[in-house]
Write a protein that binds this DNA or RNA. Structure first.
Lengths: 357, 357
DNA sequence: GTCCCGCTGGGAACCGGTTGCCGGGGGTGG
DNA sequence: CCACCCCCGGCAACCGGTTCCCAGCGGGAC
C-alpha cells in the first residue's frame, strides 16, 4: 500500500527534505523556506510551528539544491604544491581563516607539482561554480605556463569565477587575473646586503630550480645586492636544488666536498638553510664562527635552530587572507590587479662579521 | 524581440547549460547527458556532434545539479585545529592526497580550538552531504565532549554521512563512528624507557593540557615506563603547557629558574622540544652533554635541531590516508571500527647516557 | 453593513542536471 | 512484401530547494 503510507520518522535514515518539514508543521514548503530565509512576513504562530518542526527533524537545507536555485554561498578553492611546507601551510591557514570569516567553505588541492592535477582540479572548480581559485606558490615561468594559465583564467572568468595568483608569476596585461606577490627580490637583496655588510665577500647561494620564479627572484636579489656594492659574484657559488631540507643538506655537502671557498651562505629557504646547517655541523664547522648562514621565510622553527637563523620575514598568513579578500571583493568585471607585499629581514645569530682574510 | 533571439555566444559571460549544448548539437538535453555519461548507446555521428559542441562551448556539467539529481561524487571534509602544525599538516596532506586519488574533493576547516566553529562547520557538512567528516587531533575528553560528539555522529550517520575520529578520543560503544588512533601511550612508554635505560632517573616531562587526550596518553606512557622499572616519578617534574614551541620555551625557562633537578627531558612534542632546546642553549647548557632531550612526532625538522632530536615517529600521512579509506570504504551500516597505528622511537643524538650523579 | 486593502500562505515554475519510458524508423528475416 | 525487433533519441518527471504571483481571509474605515 504505497503512496500515503510512507512513514519517514524522525530518527530514520535519510535526510529530511523541506517538504517533510512542511508536512510536519502543517504548512507548505514555500512557508518553510520563507521562515528559514527570514525575509518575508510570516505570522508568529506559523513561524514557531515551522521552527519546532525544523528542530525536531534536525533539518538542514541542502546546499546543492540552494546552489542550483541560484542562492547559497559559493566555495573558495586553493591549490598548492604541498601543504606540508611551513610557508605553504601558513598561506593555507590565512586563506582558510579569511574564507571562513567571510562565510565561505574552502576546497583544497595539493598538486605535488603535477600540472595535470592542477588542471583537473581547476576544471572541477569550474563545475563547482567556485567563487575563486587561488593558485599559491611559485612556478616555472615558461611561455607554455603563461598560455595555459591564461586559458584557465579566461575559462574561469567566463564562468563568473576568478583566478588569483598568489606568489606566482603574473600573466601580462589583459588576463582576467588578480596577482598577489611578495617581494622575493627585494627581500633577498636586503638579506644579501646585510651579509655583505658584515664583510663577507664570497657568499654561497643555495638556490632552487632555475626556472622557478620564486627561486629566481631570490637569486636576482642576491645578485643585485652584490652589484649594488660593485661586486661580481662568482658563478661557481650559485648552486641549484629545490626548496626542501634534503636539498639544502645535499647541496651543502657537495659544496664542502668540492672545497668551494666561501665565508657565508644565503639559502633560498629556511628549510634549505636547516639542511645546510646540519651538514655544516656534521662537517664540524662552527656557525657563525667559521661560516655565516642566512635563510628565507622566517618559519617558526628558524628561532630554534642553533644558532638562531637570520632570515627574511614574509607575511604568509596575511598573504593568504589578502588573496581571499581581493578574490571575493570583486565581480568578474573588476580590473586586473597586482599587489606586492613587503618583506623585512630579521636579524638573529647565524650571521656574524667576517673576521679574517 | 525576446524568446528565440537569445544569442549566448561562445565567449560570452555566463556558464552554458546542457540545453545550450544540446541546441548547438541539434539534439536533446537527454542525449548530451547520455553521451557524457558514456553508458547508453548513442550513434557515432551523434556522439561526435555532441562532443564537438561540448568542446566548442567549453562545457562542464554543474556539480551541484548533479548532486541534486543524486549522482555526482560527494566531497570529504576534514577539521583540524591548526594546519600550521607540522603533524597536522602531514595528516592533512595524507587526507587530501588519498581523497583526490579516490576522486573526491576535500573541504578543510581550521578551528583554532574553537568548539563552536567546529560545530558550525559540521552542520555545513551535513548540508553539503559530505561523504564523511574527519576530525583530526586530540581534544579534551570530557563527558560534555562525548555527548556533543555523539550527537554529531548520529546526526551525520542519519544523513548518510560518517564521522571519523583521527587521533581523537573514542566515544564508547554504539556510536556510529570510525576511530583511528596512533599509540601515544606506547610510543611515550618506549621513548621514556629509552631515556631511563641511559641511566637517567630524574626526567622532566614537558606535557600538554591536562585534559587533552594526546597529552595525557603521552604522559601515561612516561609514567608507565617509570613504573615498569619500579620507579616512581617525582610529580614536581611534570609540567603542563600546550603543544607549541613557545610553550616549550617558557616551561623550560621556568624549570631552570625554579632550579628543578633533572638530567633529561621528555617533551610531549617536537615543537615543545625545539622551544625547550633553545631555552637550554640560552642558559648555556650543553645537550646532550649536561642534559638529554627527547621529543615526539618526528617532524622533518627534528633532524636539523642541534643535536639532532631523538623522538618518536608517527605515521601521520598514512594516518590521514587510512582515515579517508576507511571513511569511504563503508556505507552507514558498517560496524564501528577502531584502528590503532603503531609508532617507533627513532634514536638520534639528543639523548646520551647519564654519566655522573 | 460593505468595501477595500493588507497580511499570510499556497501553487507552480524554475534552477541544471539525470533517467524511465515510449515511439519512430530502418534493417532483417520469413 | 510485410511484420517484427532493435537501436536511438526525445518527452517528461524528478532531485530539493527558491520565488513570483495570486487568492483567501480578516479587520478597519466609511
Amino acid at each position: 500500500m504505497p503512496g500515503v503510507g510512507l512513514t519517514r520518522k524522525n530518527g530514520e535514515a535519510g535526510r529530511s527534505t523541506i517538504r517533510d518539514v512542511a508536512a510536519r508543521a502543517g504548512v507548505s514548503a514555500s512557508t518553510v523556506s520563507r521562515v528559514l530565509a527570514g525575509d518575508y512576513p510570516v505570522s508568529a504562530a506559523t513561524r514557531t510551528r515551522v521552527l519546532r518542526a525544523v528542530r525536531e527533524m534536525d533539518y538542514v537545507a541542502d546546499a546543492h539544491a540552494k546552489a542550483v536555485a541560484g542562492v547559497g554561498t559559493p566555495t573558495l578553492a586553493f591549490v598548492l604544491e604541498d601543504i606540508t611546507g611551513p610557508s605553504f601551510a601558513h598561506m593555507a591557514h590565512g586563506v582558510e581563516r579569511e574564507a571562513a570569516r567571510l562565510g565561505h567553505l574552502s576546497l583544497v588541492c595539493s598538486t605535488d607539482g603535477d600540472v595535470r592535477r592542477e588542471l583537473e582540479f581547476i576544471e572541477m572548480m569550474r563545475a563547482q561554480r567556485a567563487a575563486a581559485v587561488i593558485l599559491v606558490g611559485g612556478a616555472a615561468d615558461t611561455p607554455e605556463y603563461r598560455e595555459r594559465t591564461r586559458r584557465i583564467a579566461d575559462s574561469l572568468a567566463s564562468a563568473g569565477s576568478r583566478l588569483v595568483l598568489c606568489g606566482r608569476p603574473p600573466l601580462g596585461p589583459g588576463a582576467p587575473v588578480t596577482v598577489i606577490e611578495y617581494d622575493n627580490e627585494g627581500g633577498a637583496h636586503a638579506l644579501a646586503a646585510h651579509v655583505l655588510a658584515q664583510g663577507h665577500r664570497r657568499v654561497l647561494f643555495l638556490g632552487g630550480k632555475p626556472d622557478h620564479t620564486t627561486a629566481m627572484g631570490r637569486e636576482r636579489g642576491y645578485l643585485a645586492a652584490h652589484r649594488a656594492r660593485g661586486l661580481e659574484p662568482d658563478p661557481a657559488l650559485l648552486l641549484h636544488g629545490d626548496f626542501t631540507r634534503d636539498s639544502g643538506h645535499r647541496l651543502m655537502r657537495e659544496a664542502l666536498a668540492r672545497k668551494l671557498e666561501f665565508t657565508a651562505i644565503v639559502a633560498a629557504t629556511d628549510m634549505v638553510a636547516a639542511g645546510a646547517l646540519t651538514a655544516l655541523h656534521e662537517a664540524g664547522l662552527d656557525v657563525p664562527g667559521e661560516v655565516s648562514l642566512a635563510g628565507y621565510d622566517d618559519i617558526p622553527f628558524a628561532r630554534d635552530l642553533h644558532p638562531a637563523l637570520t632570515t627574511v620575514h614574509v607575511p604568509y598568513e596575511e598573504l593568504g587572507r589578502l588573496a581571499v579578500r581581493t578574490a571575493l571583493g570583486h565581480g568578474a568585471e573588476s580590473a586586473d590587479e597586482h599587489l606586492l607585499l613587503g618583506t623585512h629581514v630579521v636579524v638573529r645569530d647565524s650571521v656574524a662579521a667576517h673576521s679574517g682574510h
